[in-house]
Amino acid sequence: MPLIEVKDVSLAYDTPAGRVQGVLGATFNMEESEFLCLVGPSGCGKSTLLNIIAGFLTPTGGEILIGGKKVSGHGMDRGVVFQDFAQLFPWRTALGNVAFGLEMKGIGKEEREEIALQQLKLVKLEKFANSYPHHLSGGMQQRVAIARALAYNPAVLLMDEPFAALDAMTRDDMQRLLADVWKTTGKTIIYVTHNVAEAVYLADRVIVMTPHPGTVKAEIPITLPRPRDPLSVEFLDHQKQLLNYLGQGTSKAA
């Protein structure tokens, strides 16, 4: 049985301009420890779909099962990382942020700080455990956010363009780090991005979405060996294939 089943999920909402079909009939399954990327241009419903899986939005049609259980509202079986650096609590240190979920679970101070420190080690930030977020760079803040979402050991990690606001060099480092974290933890990850190269670098499988209405257009497995070389011919081939699905052929690459 797959870990996650997304069954015919739709979400429509009303805007001043009329009813908009944000997501229409999205269907796919996910195995445990799989790394899945949702790719598409803005407005294709990829973030909306992620927010439905996270339980922040309720679908107007269809359902989502995680471990056979229907999703309703958010729950601790899912960890979420947002794009905005401001997601961290400024009044808590890096360690305090990472320990938050464990604190909500009712785990004692000593134990949760020990676990939080391990998580910070995973993202190579143990030296900054006692720093407040405003003293950390954007990339470091996103690493704290990843550690925070992993700390209470959710079954699935949901990431909504977590590196989109970072500069290109930092983003490359972060992608490598995330690939390492995934390899170490074996987490099931759903990762939303509009960056095709990022998807090819990270994913086992890419789900391509297109807008108006937001629908799943294609599912493309990426079987390249890891760690992946973004400059290899095979890598670029996959990128080209994705861009073609997005209707953005080589002439006007994303």
Partner: peptide
């Protein structure tokens, strides 16, 4: 913050 905290239970 509310969203993140809600997601963390």
């Amino acid at each position: 913050w509310l969203r993140a905290a809600g997601a963390m239970g």
